[in-house]
Design a protein around this nucleic acid. Structure first.
Length: 475
RNA sequence: CGGGGCGUAGCGCAGCCCGGUUAGCGCGCCUGCUUUGGGAGCAGGAGGUCCCGAGUUCGAAUCUCGGCGCCCCGACCA
């Protein structure tokens, strides 16, 4: 495997870029910071969309679309929101050859344009809850970019809901972060911590933010999805009121939640190895590739013909027969491994004679001889096994790199090596968080939901805290 | 915006310090033959604004000055 990709700790960034490039997922565009998603990468995004969209609809949401341009004044209506987003906004000042009366902001997120519209849609408690999602692109002018993880423009989904009560909005916020958790774990095979963001890390304009945090192979954290309880902040800023059953006029309660193409970056850094990309079966646009092996033209007809015969009733999106004549089998083996296809099937003259094929797992490299009969069912079962195995491996890695630390000295020593740290930290004190970040370049990733109850002194200030938080360096 | 590195064929790079044949190598590409169960071999071939500009010199990819662009590491963030 001399031509593979080497995953050394100090070269982790380079390794990541190599996987993205060599698997032909994406590349930088001529416009700095923007990304061209190639067909292979976009196919994975389509699978993510497909599963998530279904989960949203199962929980009562519908899709809609709102404009990309937002009048600058809209953004300014919610004070915290504008403060949080203004520095990273792209602004359009000219149109039709003339200077615009009011500049248009290219959406960094759509709360403002959506709430200015919801105002017209909501009059009565009978209009609630309003449960809408949109698939869109957004633009954030970040200083430093990295393919999939942080690009100037990126694709995402953003849900925006309106509710009659605080409790109902809270329930929605929690429900959606759990949907993200389920998606990450069951579809991406990526275990996550679920919890609440600290006040300094929460969404600009939210009461609080829930999130899922995943651990990459270098031990760094990746925020993989967020769900915000917006309270009545946007309803008040955009004057969205409804008349309740008790005849009172009330402001609605809002939530918003989103995940982005960053998930693809998370997938890469969770599963890929030195031979390239590893795609969890449920996200694989093409789960199975046949590599026929032949010597002569007659053998080629025989072997390729047999592969076509086996697959004649199969879903064409499930597999591909790689009958390209210009490459040798060894080349194809490596190429499909680089591109992360979960299962490769080798079929040669010997196999045809014995009515068997050789099935090769991308996750373990294991070669399994299988009879041609009932192959499709066996492959489905194996894909499920691979999916489970990838999750188990990632979960093991996360558990192994989860540390419980009480002394700040020890934390400072350990945190640079990667991993998540369960620590007592007075996250209600912004100075403590600021010191943590300055000393260690790490942050509180979340205050986890599913953690045992514990009490202890903050490792920086000594103040007694009711729960441990998860701290780590992050992307 | 700070600190480091780079810019030479489609891609990856050597050459530069110490100026001097026709600017070279690997991959890829084209042609032919042999190959095909883990990245094929041989032979022939195409492909260059040496980032841009100015200067020094008989002579610049190489030295000097100025510019532009990219990558990495920080501050900011999904």
């Amino acid at each position: 495997m001399a031509k593979g990709i080497t995953k050394r700790a100090q070269d982790y960034s380079q390794w990541y870029i190599d996987v993205v490039r060599k698997a032909e997922l994406a590349e930088h565009s001529p416009v700095k910071g923007c990304m061209v998603i190639r067909p292979t990468g976009y196919g994975i995004w389509e699978k993510i969309q497909q599963h998530l969209d279904r989960m949203f609809k199962e929980t009562g949401h519908v899709n809609a679309y709102f404009p990309m341009f937002i009048p600058e004044s809209f953004l300014k209506k919610e004070a915290e929101h504008v403060e949080g987003f203004a520095p990273e906004c792209a602004v359009v000042t000219h149109g039709g050859g003339k200077k615009l009366e009011e500049p248009l902001v290219v959406r960094p997120t759509s709360e403002t344009i959506i709430w200015s519209t919801y105002k017209n849609w909501i009059n009565s408690y009978r209009d609630l809850p309003l449960l809408i999602n949109q698939w869109a692109n957004v633009c954030r002018w970040e200083m430093r970019t990295r393919l999939f993880l942080r690009t100037t423009e990126f694709l995402w989904q953003e849900g925006h809901t309106a509710h009659a009560t605080h409790e109902e909005a809270e329930e929605e916020t929690m429900k959606m972060v759990r949907v993200y958790q389920r998606f990450a774990e069951d579809y991406m095979a990526m275990p996550v911590f679920v919890g609440r963001k600290t006040d300094s890390e929460k969404f600009a304009g939210a009461l609080h933010t829930y999130c899922i945090e995943a651990m990459m192979q270098d031990g760094k954290a990746l925020q993989a999805g967020t769900s915000h309880h917006l309270g009545q902040n946007f309803a008040k800023a955009f004057d969205v009121k409804f008349q309740d059953a008790d005849k009172e006029l009330k402001y609605v309660h809002a939530t918003s939640w989103g995940v982005s193409t960053r998930l693809i970056g998370g997938m890469i850094m969770t599963h890929s190895d030195d031979n390239g990309l590893v795609i969890p079966p449920r996200l694989a646009p093409m789960p199975v590739v046949f590599v026929p092996i032949w010597r002569s033209d007659e053998q080629m007809d025989l072997v390729v013909g047999k592969a076509r015969e086996i697959t004649k009733d199969w879903d064409p999106l499930f597999y591909r027969i790689d009958d390209r004549d210009q490459y040798k089998p060894g080349y194809k083996f490596n190429e499909w491994e680089l591109k992360g296809v979960p299962i490769r099937i080798e079929i040669g003259p010997r196999d045809v004679e014995q009515n068997t094929v050789v099935v090769v797992r991308r996750d373990t490299g294991e070669k399994i001889p299988m009879p041609m009969e009932g192959l499709r069912e066996k492959l489905e079962a194996l894909l499920e096994k691979i999916q489970q195995n990838l999750f188990t491996l990632a979960k093991q890695r996360m558990d192994e790199n989860l540390h419980t630390v009480d002394s700040y000295d020890e934390y400072k020593q350990q945190v640079g090596k990667g991993g998540f740290f369960r620590v007592f930290l007075d996250h209600e004190n912004p100075e403590v968080e600021a010191k943590l970040q300055e000393d260690t370049r790490s942050t509180v990733r979340c205050i986890p939901f599913d953690a045992p109850e514990e009490e202890g002194p903050c490792m920086i200030s000594g103040k007694i805290c009711k729960n441990r938080v998860i701290a780590a360096q992050s992307y």
